[in-house]
């Protein structure tokens, strides 16, 4: 059987079978993608002379990283950084505390349907709205200042953590949880002994990660008046004070790196 098959194949060219086998679908995708790219690139207006002029400023900015200026606006930078950190810490604590019950509520294997739907709703809203948009709305409602930033970050933390927590609980090892329930434990005891040990390490890891994200986000909230270092940074860019901007960016990068390092240590210890 195979030798006749072989005879027909010998001498024929071989081509890798295409990823998408249906010819019309493949050509439609290729053509559509190409068409989109052409249209998209054509619709982007680039003022090349402006870009060319900008290259000089770009070089100046890169050069500013070698001579960052921490001193001229030292007071602004210190206040802004402190405010960012304060917002980050407070919002992370509150966010984590609230996200635990919501995460439990959003796990289908723990919560009754109405609770589940409410919690999932909160998560969906929180995840769909950009931090900066939430901040704009909260600034409009609560006025300028770090309170709006704090609330924004807390709200975003809840969406992020609760969702991951709920998914984690939904995929947890049923046998362990059932073993605890089989001892006749109450619901709270069951959560405490059967469920909590399973998600705690991951919750701690995720919380550290969220702390990191919250700090990064806190750096932009100032752009819309919600407190933190963003306002100072914005001013520095507006005045083309690249050396001050570089100083702030370096601080942000260093703090993020430190947080990542710290979270690495914490995660390796709890797991």
């Amino acid at each position: 059987m195979s030798s006749s098959e072989l005879d027909t194949l010998i001498g024929t060219r071989w081509k890798k079978p295409p990823f998408i086998r249906r010819v019309w679908l493949r050509s439609a995708l290729v053509l559509g993608g190409f068409l989109y790219l052409v249209l998209a690139i054509a619709s982007v207006e680039v003022n090349w002379s402006r870009v060319y002029e900008g290259l000089e400023r770009g070089a100046a900015f890169v050069a500013a990283f070698t001579t960052p200026d921490f001193t001229t606006r030292a007071a602004d930078i210190r206040e802004g950084m402190l405010e960012s950190i304060v917002m980050t810490v407070a919002a992370s604590v509150v966010g984590i505390l609230i996200s635990i019950p919501i995460g439990l509520g959003a796990a289908r294997n723990l919560a009754p349907l109405p609770v589940y739907l409410v919690c999932r709703g909160i998560i969906a809203v929180s995840r769909a709205l950009q931090e900066i948009i939430v901040a704009i709305l909260l600034v409009a409602i609560f006025g300028f200042g770090p309170l709006a930033g704090f609330l924004t970050l807390s709200f975003a933390t809840i969406g992020f953590l609760s969702k991951l927590l709920a998914e984690d609980i939904e995929s947890m090892d049923r046998a362990q949880a059932e073993a605890v329930r089989a001892t006749g434990a109450r619901w709270t005891q069951w959560i405490n002994y059967g469920v909590q040990p399973q998600f705690m390490p991951r919750l701690i890891g995720l919380s550290m990660y969220r702390l990191d994200i919250n700090f990064r986000e806190s750096a932009i909230l100032g752009l819309v008046g919600a407190g933190g270092i963003g306002a100072t940074l914005n001013t520095a860019f507006d005045r083309y004070e690249f050396d001050t901007a570089a100083a702030i960016l370096i601080l942000i990068i260093v703090i993020v790196m430190a947080l990542e390092y710290l979270s690495g240590i914490v995660r390796s210890r709890v797991q």
Binding site: E5, W14, K16
Partner: peptide, 26 residues
């Protein structure tokens, strides 16, 4: 580009046939 010389392609077919896997080539 997966453009191997025809002699290589033929040899590949022959070997696959020898081990009985020609029908699995793709």
């Amino acid at each position: 580009l997966r453009r191997f010389p025809q002699s290589d392609v033929d040899e590949a077919y022959r070997l696959l046939d020898r081990v009985g896997l020609l029908h699995m080539a793709d």
